[in-house]
Amino acid sequence: MASPEDASRPFAGFSDVSIPEDIPVEGDISVPVPPSARDDELSTLDEPVKETVLRDLRAVGKKFVHVLYPKRSSVLLRDWDLWGPLLLCVTLALLLQGGAADSNEQGGPQFAEVFVVVWFGSIVITLNSKLLGGTLSFFQSLCVLGYCIMPLTVAMAVCRVVLFAISGKAGFIVRLVVVTASFGWSTFASTAFLSDSQPSNRKALVVYPVFLFYFVIGWMILTFSP
């Protein structure tokens, strides 16, 4: 039998291949992973689809909360996913698209344009932060930038309501305030997550393209008219 300290260090014996004679070979094979954790890992196979979807949605929702209340935490960075950014990007593009579809002059941005701007822009920012010496991985950065569009998406929804309800100068002022606030919020939230990974003297260089990126999106939202 293996001694107790061997059980605590399960792979310690493998470094030394030659086996002393006083240890008999036969015995139990103890699994180092606790059985309960193992069950949790495996049980996703036969769980209902609803639970799987709900769990993923809950994870996405948790990250939304992190963006709305940006505090220094590593959840958004550690478990990155691209579902939330996809969801936000599609929502934003659809909201911006609607106006252009039913007007003749096609003044609003097209679905594809918004989509390309968001993804291409975040890829450029990510590459830039990598080139400046950031320590975040590619997809972590994409995830953060994608999730931080959320205030702007909310602002877009608000703008549509405002456009519907209030017209004229007052409506424009309300939209301007909403978009400016959400633009600031987006920039602040993303820099709170991104700037930790940068060398402290170069934060301004990383923040500038982020600022530009959200500014262009904010400008698109502000100039949208159905």
Binding site: Q106, G107, G108, P109, Q110, A112, E113, V116, V117
Partner: peptide
């Protein structure tokens, strides 16, 4: 300027 946005960008 009113043109297609994709072209514009």
């Amino acid at each position: 300027t009113v043109i297609r946005e994709g072209t514009l960008m």
